[in-house]
Design a protein around this nucleic acid. Sequence first.
RNA 1: GGGCGGUUAGCUCAGUUGGCUAGAGCGCCUCGCUUACACCGAGGAGGUCGUUGGUUCAAGUCCAUCACCGCCCACCA
Length: 857
Amino acid sequence: MKHAQTLNSEMPKAFDPLAIEAGWYARWEADGLFIADPASDQPKFAMCFPPPNITGELHMGHALQAAVYDLIARYKRMTGYEVLFLPGYDHAAIATQNVIEKQLAREGTTKEELGRDHFNARVDAWYEEVGAQIINQLRLLGASMDWTRLRFTMDARYVRAVTTAFVEFYKHGWIYRAPRIVNWCPHDRSAISDLEVEWREHQDTLYFVKYPIEGGGDLTIATVRPETMLADTGVAVNPADGRYRNLVGKTAVLPLVGRKLPIVADDAVETAFGTGALKVTPGHDPTDYEIGQRHGLEIVNGMNLDGSMNVPGLPYDGLGALEARARIVADLKEQGLLVREEPYTHEVGHCDRCHAVIEPLISEQWWLRMEELRDHALAASEAGKVRWHPERYERTYLDWLRGLRDWNIGRQLWLGHRVPVFYCANGHTTVSVEPPSNCDECGNAELTQDPDVLDTWFSSALWPFATLGWPDQTEDLKAFYPTDINCTAREIINLWVSRMIMTGLEFMGDVPFSDVVIHCVVQAPDGRRMSKSLGTGVDPRDLMSKYGADALRAWATSVAMSSQDVRFDESRVEGYRRFCNKLWNATRLVLGSPGVDSADSPGIVERHEHLEDRWILSRLSYAADAVTAGIERFTFQDSINAAYSFAWNEFCDWYLEAVKDRLREGDAVAQDVAFQCLDTLLRFLHPFMPFVTEELWSRLPRREDYLMRNSWPEPQFVDPGAEEEFQEVMAIVEEVRGHRQAAGAPPRGGKLRLDGSVNHSIARLVARLAHVDLVDAPEARGTPLAVVAGRVAFPSGAGDARREKERKRLEDDLARIEARLESSDFQEKAPPEVVKNLEERATAAREALNRLADQDS
RNA sequence: GGGCGGUUAGCUCAGUUGGCUAGAGCGCCUCGCUUACACCGAGGAGGUCGUUGGUUCAAGUCCAUCACCGCCCACCA
């Protein structure tokens, strides 16, 4: 349990985050506060943390995401839920393979040289090392994750879930194997899905090439990839294109190769592009593939899996694409077939992991039919089962879903979940979760497993239930599925969120979560992408060691739901460290008051004789409401801002200043109110800044338990009258201070006569806060301050400039207000309360001007 | 090519259903080491809310247009 001590004398003057963070995390964890109990009779609340790729350390995006998740987890615990916050990490097959390959390259070797076994050992070691790093960083952040339920997508249990899903889909007849044109990464020697292609702008050349026509004449086509012409099997024109109508049905002859190419008419051809004639390469272009299918064109495979040319008998055989291109262009030029070249800018697909140029080619792959999965997901959305925050992202998701095509789930990588398909020597296929010992059909025991692995996203798609034990009906699964929230960056809405929804509906019969929260992306200060390779990354650990985890988290949650991406601004993180320090010192002040150990805390103050007490308690209620509303609406910045301004601008700047004397005298009511404020404030700040709040709360008198497992505050002391009166206090005090500075007077001292209309409570506070003595009448000489009708003036004439400025402001304001009030349209059409409000403002401005005039006379 | 978001103080950002006398943090200027805090306190300067129109008694807030910036989808070679 925690150590009990409440002596502020032990509190250093400055808050040191590093001195307390690790200790609290260890204590929370040791006391099992992160562990979820499926048998609890509390309502359940669950979130499965998006498994970070094990490709390296956590970056800013992870920190931001973890801060948001953890704030929700802590908030829900405090509001009475049994919370499961489940951590894990992802094997990220293609990404990890690339990382290891790069390491090997640096060591001057390759995975082929190393061999499968050694390569796998290497990968395992890497998973262990990086997995530990990631966990460590999440702990540093204060993420209250249930580490007893840590999951890894390569754990045996998880693997079984993945293969089970595959087998189920297969039984439905949704998984099939077929040759199709795919995005081929020649570097990874694997197919990748459409979503894993990253498009980049290239400055290329558009080549215009003359194709002779049998029986005389020729036509010119335009291409940026002349090397693919070696695999051309046709030429296409638009049926509506009058220029070429007479050529349809004729045959062109492929230069350099001599192959006969039927000229066909197809709507897919754009008449406005190039010459309006398209060379058709069904084996290496998706559009061409479809045209080829429609017209029965032959498919020629002109490329090897490593991206080199596969054109036996031609001089380009075995060359890389770019080299072949140069040679072909030269040869065409020599033969007079190159009509012209134009610079051309277009988008070229790259592998999003290794960045190699994608080569579309025909390949036999595993496919998953999406029709039914998609339709169920669409129906779930229509039924309002998933809410998106901000709402607009629902459309992003739905638009993508509606255009969904079959998913290429096979990968030809060394890493990943193996496809659970086995072939026997007789050519039969057995599909099974557990490796079969015999062929299902003929009993043959000589089985070989399909070499393909599954797309990483196939396994990630099962995350919300596979982590809970599916396909077994575990206690966790029953208690915590469906989960409640998924929070990610928008870039993986389609890759991941959509697929979880589809598999959840399929295997669990319900959506995997009810709310999807999309957070913004943090950019480098100059607006570029934050990236290690660009050198624009900022390490969250550096920030934590400079400012503390609380400051980083407070900043992260304050920007997470921005409508636009945010540029990283370190000064804002620093600002939240100062805020922690402010809280620290405010607590220190209150704890330093004599006799606090016996203060009646916590307890609602029944003795309301002090205006400032009623005022701050009313403000506290208002702030607590705002914090709660912000969390509930997923606008965390509203929560942070409300907490910050209450703590700093109201509690510290005004309340503590107002009650300093009372605290010093050991006034039990002031102590009680101050503790009440601190107690509540620390509670509603805890999800945002768990460490400093737990530390300070533990120092308040008689706090036996952890703040972390205490209840969410709902103070309900609202006193509009007190708020109004205190406004008056602040206005007069600010005026005194303003005049003082304008006149160059000392910051305290002097005498002030308040108008008789100012009540005693207000007068008392003004005197204290403005550091003046109240008198009945200003003395003729040596009186620095005087007041007329509740407003401050210097009788001497010092402060005239300020007064003049004030007059100007008031006059301008009054003129504007009167202009509006004089409009009959306004009087008739504006709501009465708006008119009334404006009239009151006009009155106030006139009174203020009158007072200024009185002072002049 | 389609869709979405953004353009508010020197910088980074807030501004809920139109009522704003437009805010915060940082930075800047002037004071002040007052027994919680100099990781501080007090005062102050600084914005015709990207453009041009429109709707309205009233527009940063709604509509249209244009201009930039960013993102997501999209297989015109």
